[in-house]
Nucleic acid binder design. Structure first.
Length: 215
DNA sequence: GGCCAGGTCAAAG
DNA sequence: CTTTGACATGGC
């Protein structure tokens, strides 16, 4: 995989245009991990409602959350959509981490990055984007997150159109210095750009900060 | 009312 | 191996 130096230029342009995004919008590693599962194909506003329910229930605690009745968990996270599915996915993930680390689940982040990533991916319902989000934003590990906006933004500029998730991820890893703070900011900026200017059906490319980027 | 949202997995073709 | 369908709420 050859580096693509324009990616760093894109990051700089977006940072200049939007400023720091202060991601992830969550306070504790557990809350971030939960949010990463709940936001799968779902508007963040809905996720916030679900997380508020968990907070009010006192369930944003690893042991409490893992011990909740599955039906009650599903009801609490209902606003996030796919609630039965996501309740099972959260339970899978919490159980898997507990099997390896007990309640000290954050030990997973002390593993070598590739090993930690494989461990998270072993939970059914945790795919590559969710795993990378947890590693980067909950674990402060340098794993670049690719999402639908990443594909769309790059695709509209003619880049990476023949690449799948891991191909695109490898391109970013090969093109950027290995810095957690950079990966954190860049992904957040790509989401910001996608929401504001690179929508599926209504691009506002006239004033887009990335206009003209990559030719 | 239709379209969309910070995906993932299993079943078809 | 590639494509398709299921999963669901809430905002615009």
């Amino acid at each position: 995989m050859r580096p693509e130096p324009r990616l760093l230029e894109l990051h700089d342009r977006l940072l200049a245009a939007f400023g720091p995004q202060h991601w992830w919008p969550g306070e504790t590693p557990l809350e971030i991990m939960v949010g990463a599962v709940l936001t799968q194909n779902t508007n963040w506003g809905n996720v916030e409602r679900a997380i508020a329910n968990l907070k009010a229930r006192g369930a944003l605690d690893f042991a409490v959350l893992r011990g909740l009745d599955l039906a009650e968990l599903a009801e609490l996270i209902r606003p996030a959509g796919y609630y039965n599915l996501k309740a099972a996915r959260l339970r899978n993930l919490l159980d898997l981490l507990h099997q390896h680390h007990g309640d000290a689940w954050r030990e997973v982040f002390a593993l070598p990055l590739a090993a930690a990533r494989e461990r998270l991916l072993a939970a059914k319902g945790v795919g590559p984007e969710t795993a990378d989000s947890i590693l980067l934003y909950a674990g402060d590990q340098p794993s670049f997150v690719v999402d639908a906006y990443t594909f769309r933004v790059l695709g509209r500029h003619g880049l990476g159109q023949d690449l799948d998730y891991h191909g695109l991820r490898d391109l970013f890893l090969a093109s950027l210095p290995t810095e957690t703070a950079l990966y954190n900011e860049f992904h957040a900026l790509l989401v910001r750009l996608g929401k504001e200017y690179c929508k599926k059906s209504r691009p506002r490319c006239e004033t887009c900060p990335a206009r003209g980027w990559a030719g």
